[in-house]
């Protein structure tokens, strides 16, 4: 029973990532809902050569709902809906005259949304395996602001197929799990396709009250898009973006249903993406 509870819990933990993850689908009739806030502020970015260059300070704040629901013991429906997102860039001000050279701007709205179906290919085994199809819906503004460089999405409809393999085990008296995934993201509208990959490990402490998770995940661009389709793309929505990110997380179960989590993520290397840590806090509900 304790092991079953742990398996159910780690399926919740995987759902913390933006993409449906983990080899464990939700049991039939069970669900997981998370309300969270994610943000990133950056004044530098990784260039196409992987070096760091400055940029005008830009910020992105996203309030999202994440939901998983088990239609059957093998089939899980997943929704990631950023119901409110705000992105902005700072004023640039002359150090000589104090005059505003370029006025900062901001836009608010709904951001790009993902809907997914996860199917458990191998369940109730020491190693579980699932396949997930994700559709990226371009609900977010992709060319906001006067210069069109404020974005709440990439403006393209993408389809991603992902395989997850996971296992749970004991580390002494501590329950633990590990998961690995790889996915292919087919992007449209001239954007390059992507390979996505990641590994993850987590452990539960204090009678499964507190969980620590460590993730390493990345994106590799196939660079097969039409290059100039990203004339105004910056931040996390640019074409040919690549990164490898390390992300620790802490999740605390307040009771059987409710819990809170905090996540930190920092890119170890990247190309054409902001170079700044991102943060997320959230509250989740298990049904």
């Amino acid at each position: 029973m304790k092991r079953l509870c742990f398996l159910i819990f780690i399926s919740f933990l995987f759902s913390f990532s933006a993409f449906a993850g983990g080899g464990w689908p939700q049991p039939k009739g069970h669900g997981f809902f998370k309300f969270s806030q994610w943000w990133l502020i950056s004044d530098q970015h990784f260039t196409d050569t992987g070096l760091l260059d400055p940029n005008v300070t830009q910020g992105i704040f996203t309030t999202s709902i994440y939901a998983e629901y088990g239609f059957t013991d093998r089939l899980t429906g997943i929704l990631y809906f950023p119901l409110f997102s705000r992105t902005y860039f700072n004023n640039t001000v002359s150090a000589t005259t104090g005059e505003i050279l370029t006025a900062g701007e901001a836009i608010n709205g709904v951001a790009d949304t993902d809907i997914s179906l996860k199917y458990g290919l191998i369940v109730n085994k020491p190693v579980v395996l699932s396949a997930t199809l994700t559709l990226g819906l371009p609900f977010g503004e992709s060319q906001g602001g006067t210069a069109g460089n404020l974005q709440l999405g990439d403006g393209e409809f993408n389809q991603m197929l992902q395989l997850d393999a996971g296992t749970s085990f004991q580390l002494g008296k501590v329950a633990a799990y590990a998961n690995a995934y790889a996915g292919f993201n087919n992007r449209t509208n001239g954007f390059s396709d992507e390979l996505r990959y990641g590994i993850e490990a987590g452990t539960g402490f204090f009678g499964s009250k507190l969980y620590t998770i460590f993730r390493l995940y990345g994106i590799s661009s196939l660079k097969n898009g039409s290059n100039r389709n990203n004339e105004n793309s910056t931040s996390i929505f640019a074409n040919n973006t690549e990164f490898l990110t390390f992300s620790p997380e802490i999740a605390y179960n307040i009771n059987e249903k409710w819990g809170v989590s905090a996540t930190y993520a920092s890119a170890l290397k990247g190309r054409l993406i902001f170079a700044a840590p991102s943060y997320a806090v959230g509250v989740y509900l298990n049904l």
């Binding site: 806030q37 502020i41 409110f84 902005y88 700072n90 640039t92 900062g104």
Partner: peptide, 19 residues
């Protein structure tokens, strides 16, 4: 409170050394 944190993030100033 969570949505408020988004809205409260105001546009700041980046100084350009343009002398």
């Amino acid at each position: 409170a969570i949505i408020g944190t988004s809205l409260c993030n105001c546009i700041g100033d980046d100084i350009i050394f343009d002398t």
